[in-house]
Design a protein around this nucleic acid. Structure first.
Length: 489
RNA sequence: GGCUGAGUGGCAGAGUGGCUAUGCAGCGGACUGCAAAUCCGUGUACCUCGGUUCGACUCCGGGCUCAGCCUCCA
């Protein structure tokens, strides 16, 4: 049975859906004012695997996955002004870029991708409900004139505030670093509706023209798309406080119902043992990494650590991920996967690992053993090999891996960096032919010439050809005297 | 200052109260014209100090170190 670490209770718990016919998950997605970085890649991939696995357990049609897009906030406004663009122009652009990255990483499309700007009436309704119920207040008359239309959430009214993040309001007040805002009754209160300054994008509301605070949009969109009470809510660990804490406060105060059963947070991506983040400026965009590494390699790298652990980025780790994938595709090379499992034992262990809070490193370990079994039986039991290969592909597919033809993995693309050895230069991927000026036909001719030389025991010529290809980043692998395959190194 | 999480072999990374993780790298062997790939074998480990226990890397307590949150952040 599937167990998930619930961050609300800080324990691993059996996962019991509210409705097994409709398992519902909401994940906080991106604020679209820039390209996604590796931290975003991790959220995308981690919850993609959760989604895939839930679909496998409960049936593809019985899982609803919603991942929102924040398309209005201060940073977006600032960036649009910098670039001299309209808000919509900017957000459409970066939504398209985000989708490109997600597609490259093999991330399934969520069932719904709600945007804040398209749910303004639900947002305003929820704020109104909070005001009506006495959980929210409008900035008073004595406050700054420009905050008159601001509406704040009254944290003191919500009894369970701090449960998710393990904080209590007294400690928070004691250590409060938030700047004193005269409009707030309490430094912990947070804004639900921000009145618009001149020239800012805005929507009409009972409190005047303005825009929503960050937290309220997720409460409104989540309950709108999935109902007041749903199964799983996910996001990066940095959203635990205050974002998710505030979501709970808003949603439960507004609906009077429990908001979410299971809270999941993925760990940070780090660079040199330090959190990769926009504010520190120590981040790599997905785009940059994909210039050097195959997207499936990046995906493997992410899944080779448990989702709650920190993930340290380095080229060395990416190189290892590449080597690991190479091993898997080698096992699949030259076989014809045939359904009809003799790989049950592996599947059982794989699922046990995934059932244990999505333990992907453990699941991958099982895949390695499966690959070894395939290689072991190769040449002696073709039927068993074909069936095990099918199992490897199927289980890999649960992780969104190993879906390609091995030949495409080996020969399809390669980073240009390899050929010239100029690591400092920005690199890009191209088709094999573009990359090296070394067309496939030429590779084939050289391999044939080498086969001929080997037949004649002309080892000098044979090795010369191999070296010539190696200089282009091409590795030859002899299957026998007549069958030689190649791959990009 | 308050709170949270983590410290495993050369590196990465799981897990368990007593029994092989797994991968990469290393070493030995098989295969190969030589390689590559693959297979077989193999070494190195559980931050520290106490406690519980027949027995702890695994449970409990103290310490040290690291990371994170308490402000926007996936």
């Amino acid at each position: 049975m599937l167990q998930i670490h619930n961050n609300l209770t800080k324990r691993k718990e059996p996962f019991v859906p509210i409705d097994p016919k409709n398992v519902r998950m909401y994940v906080c997605g991106m604020t679209v004012y820039d390209l996604c970085h590796l931290g975003h890649a991790r959220v995308l991939v981690v919850f993609d695997v959760v989604y895939r696995y839930l679909r496998r357990v409960y049936g593809a049609e019985h899982v609803t996955y919603v991942r929102n897009v924040t398309d209005i906030d201060d940073k977006i406004i600032a960036r649009a002004n910098e670039r001299g663009e309209k808000i919509e122009q900017l957000t459409e652009h970066f939504i398209a870029e985000m989708t490109r990255d997600a597609d490259a990483l093999g991330v399934l499309h969520p069932g719904e991708e709600p945007r804040a700007t398209r749910h303004m009436s639900e947002i305003i309704d929820m704020i109104q409900t909070l005001v009506d119920k006495g959980y929210a207040y409008q900035a008073g008359k004595g406050d700054r004139a420009d905050s008159l239309g601001d509406v704040y959430y009254d944290v003191s009214r919500f009894e369970h505030y701090g449960q998710l993040s393990g904080k209590n309001t007294d400690d928070l007040r004691a250590g409060a670093r938030v700047e004193v805002d005269v409009a707030k009754q309490d430094p912990l209160d947070f804004v639900l509706w921000k009145s618009a300054k001149p020239g800012e994008p805005c929507w009409e509301s009972p409190w005047g023209k303005g825009r929503p605070g960050w937290h309220i949009e997720c409460s409104a969109m989540a309950t709108c798309c999935l109902g007041n009470h749903f199964d799983i809510h996910g996001g990066g660990l940095d959203l635990q406080f205050p974002h998710h804490e505030n979501e709970i406060a808003q949603s439960e105060a507004a609906t009077g119902e429990k908001f979410v059963n299971v809270w999941m947070h993925n760990g940070f991506v780090r660079l040199d043992e330090e959190k990769m983040s926009k504010s520190l400026g120590n981040f790599f965009t997905i785009r940059e990494v994909l210039e050097k590494y195959d997207a499936e390699v990046v995906r493997f790298f992410i899944l080779n650590s448990h989702y709650r652990s920190p993930l340290n980025y380095s080229d060395k780790h990416l190189d290892e991920a590449k080597a690991a994938l190479t091993t898997f595709y080698h096992a699949l090379r030259g076989v014809t996967p045939v359904e009809g499992g003799n790989g049950q034992a592996y599947a059982v262990r794989f699922e046990a690992a995934m059932d244990d809070d999505f333990n992907t490193p453990e699941a991958i370990a099982v895949l390695f053993e499966l690959a070894r079994e395939i290689n072991r039986l190769r040449g002696s039991d073709a039927q068993a090999v074909d069936r095990l290969a099918a199992e490897l592909v199927r289980l890999g597919g649960c992780l969104g891996l190993l879906a390609r033809d091995p030949e495409v993995f080996f020969q399809g693309r390669r980073p240009t960096e390899i050929q010239a050895g100029c690591a400092s230069r920005t690199t890009t991927t191209h088709n094999a032919e573009v990359a090296s000026g070394f067309p496939e036909a030429k590779i084939k001719i050289l391999i044939e010439a080498r086969t001929e030389a080997r037949k004649n025991k002309d080892w000098a010529e044979s090795d010369r050809i191999r070296d010539e290809l190696a200089a282009q980043g091409i590795v030859l692998e002899d299957g026998g005297p007549q069958s030689t395959t190649w791959r990009w190194e």
